[in-house]
């Protein structure tokens, strides 16, 4: 059986810093995927996921164990992703490398075999960051609206509304796609 996170954390805090590897092994895939779903860019997702672990390590002493460690880690990672999206949105579009954008579009197209999946991926990309975050935490991390509200620092009602808006937007995306094709 896997050692509980709380025990691993206690070991790290008692000076056995190498035990942090256990937490990295346990959550690296989830955190990387969460960051990828937020950024749709593997390089950025990798950097953000690594940064999330570094920040978690630095502030492990302030983790109170009132939530699951994974939820705490999602919050760190999600804050980083949202800040990243904010800073890239501020970028002057003329500064964005055209080739890079094409490459990203190409790799996305190869990755998404079906046209409907591609339409959905575009739909997700177009969601406001908070809605995208809510959708990711709900669908992929399986969190409750309450947990999502805690992570995104909003009310449960807002988390719910963001989720409903996001799903409705994707539903419309499929609907529009059907009309076009």
């Amino acid at each position: 059986m896997r050692e509980p996170d709380s025990e691993v954390i206690q070991r790290v805090l008692k000076g056995e810093t190498g035990a942090f590897d256990v937490l990295v092994q346990q959550y690296q895939q989830e955190i990387y995927r969460l960051a990828y779903r937020m950024t749709r860019n593997a390089e950025d997702a990798q950097d953000l996921a690594q940064e999330a672990f570094v920040q978690a390590y630095r502030s492990l002493g302030s983790f109170r164990g009132l939530s699951r460690f994974s939820t705490w880690l999602y919050r760190i990672a999600m804050n980083l992703c949202l800040n990243h999206l904010k800073s890239t949105a501020r970028q002057d579009p003329s500064e964005v490398d055209g080739n890079l954008a094409d490459q990203r579009a190409d790799s996305l197209a190869t990755l998404l075999a079906g046209e409907r999946d591609r339409a959905l991926a575009e739909g997700i990309e177009a969601l406001p960051p908070q809605q995208k975050a809510t959708l990711t935490l709900r669908v992929h991390q399986g969190l409750s609206h309450r947990e999502i509200a805690g992570i995104l620092d909003c009310s449960e009602g807002t988390a719910k509304a963001n989720y409903f808006h996001a799903v409705r937007a994707l539903q419309r995306k499929l609907q529009a796609f059907q009309k076009v094709s």
Partner: peptide, 23 residues
């Protein structure tokens, strides 16, 4: 359909090459 598809949208492996390298 949207929710079912979103759930299975693929995610590429990290550029670093392997999870061991990530670690």
């Amino acid at each position: 359909e949207a929710l079912a598809r979103v759930e299975t949208l693929p995610v590429p492996e990290p550029p670093v090459g392997s999870w061991q390298a990530f670690e």
